[in-house]
Amino acid sequence: MREPLADQHSASTVQQVAAAIAAAVRGGHLAPGQRLTEAEFVRRFSVSRSSVREAFQRLAADGLLTFEPHRGVVVRQLSRKEVDNLFEVRGALEALAVGLGAPKFHADPQRLLALQNEMDRAVEANDMSGFSDLNRRFHAMFAETADNALLDETLGRLSNSIYWLQFRLLINRQQVFQSNAQHRLVVEAIIAGDAQAAQAAMREHVDTSRRLIQQLPDDHFASA
C-alpha cells in the first residue's frame, strides 16, 4: 500500500520516513530481524531513495535498525544483556527527567493530572492500545518538561530501541495495566512536592518494565 509523504528529499521528508518506520516497528508491522529494502519504502512512501537511505541511517544510529553483512538493513533484535543495559541507562535518565520537571509540575499540576486521569480511564476500559499511547505520552512529558534537549533526544533514542519489545509486552501481558499504579505513585509524589520519591518511583517503574520484558521467551531476543 502506498503512503505518500513527499516528493522531494528534505530534512522533513527524512524525518517523516523515519517516524513512519518507527511506528511500523512499534505497531508490530515490522518484526525483529526483518530485512528492509530501500526500494520497498521508496514505493510505499513515494519519496526518493536518498530520503529512505538517510532515514535508515538515522534509525540505525537510534538503535532501531542495524546493518548486517550480506543482509543489509534489518530491524534490530536486542540480546537480554542489551535489554538490561538499556533499561539501566533509561531508568537513570527518566529519573533525572522527573527530577528536573517535578518543580514545574508541582507548581502547575493540571496537565499531569489530566493525563493520569486518561490512563486510569484506559485501564478501566481495558483499552490496551490507548493505554500504550498514553504511557508513551506520560514518559515523554517529563523529558519535554525537563527543558534539556540532549536528555529528550537520548531518551527518544532509547525508546526507539525497545518499541517492538514493548508492543509484544502490551499484546501478551496484562501486567502492563498494573504499571499504572506506579504512574500514580510518581504523580502523587510530585503533587506532594517530594521530587526524590517521584524519582525513586520512576526508577522502579522502569525496572518493572525491564523485568516483564525479560519474561518473554528466548526467541524474542538476539543471541548474547
Rank of each mutant, 00 (worst) to 15 (best):
D7V: 09
Q199W: 01
N85E: 12
K81C: 03
E82R: 15
E82A: 15
A23D: 14
L65T: 04
R43G: 11
E3S: 05
N135P: 00
N135Y: 04
I213V: 15
M119W: 05
R184G: 02
A95M: 08
F221A: 04
E188L: 07
D108S: 11
H183Q: 08
Q174Y: 07
E144Y: 09
V186Y: 02
H139D: 00
D207Y: 09
L59R: 03
R90I: 01
Q8E: 15
Q174P: 03
L100V: 05
A198L: 12
Q196R: 13
A97Q: 04
S161G: 13
A197Y: 03
M1D: 11
M141H: 03
P4E: 11
D84E: 15
L216R: 10
A192D: 14
A181Q: 15
K81W: 04
A224I: 04
T37Q: 00
E40K: 03
F56N: 08
R111Y: 02
K104F: 12
Q8H: 13
Q110T: 07
R26W: 03
F138L: 03
R43C: 07
A198H: 09
V186S: 04
A24L: 13
E124T: 02
V89Q: 14
H9Y: 14
N180W: 06
A200L: 13
R35H: 00
M119D: 03
A92S: 13
V186E: 09
E88V: 09
L115V: 06
V25W: 10
A181T: 13
S129V: 09
R71Q: 15
R211K: 11
I213D: 11
Q199L: 05
A20H: 12
R49D: 09
R2E: 15
N85K: 13
L36Y: 01
L86M: 07
R71A: 15
V186P: 00
H70M: 12
Q8W: 09
A189T: 03
H29R: 14
V47F: 13
V187R: 01
M141G: 12
H183T: 01
H220M: 10
F221N: 05
R184K: 13
V89G: 06
H205M: 03
I191D: 05
L151N: 06
A198V: 11
R71P: 05
W164T: 01
E153F: 11
N126P: 00
N148F: 09
Q57V: 05
D147M: 14
A19Y: 03
S132F: 10
E40N: 00
R76D: 07
R35A: 06
R49E: 12
S51E: 12
A23C: 06
P4H: 10
A11P: 00
G130S: 05
A224H: 11
G33T: 08
A60G: 02
Q182K: 11
R211G: 06
F45W: 06
V206E: 04
L169Y: 08
L170S: 15
K81N: 10
A31C: 01
D62C: 12
T208S: 07
R49H: 08
V83S: 10
K81A: 14
T37Y: 00
L170E: 07
D127S: 06
R168Q: 15
P4Y: 12
F131K: 05
Q215G: 12
H139K: 00
A95R: 07
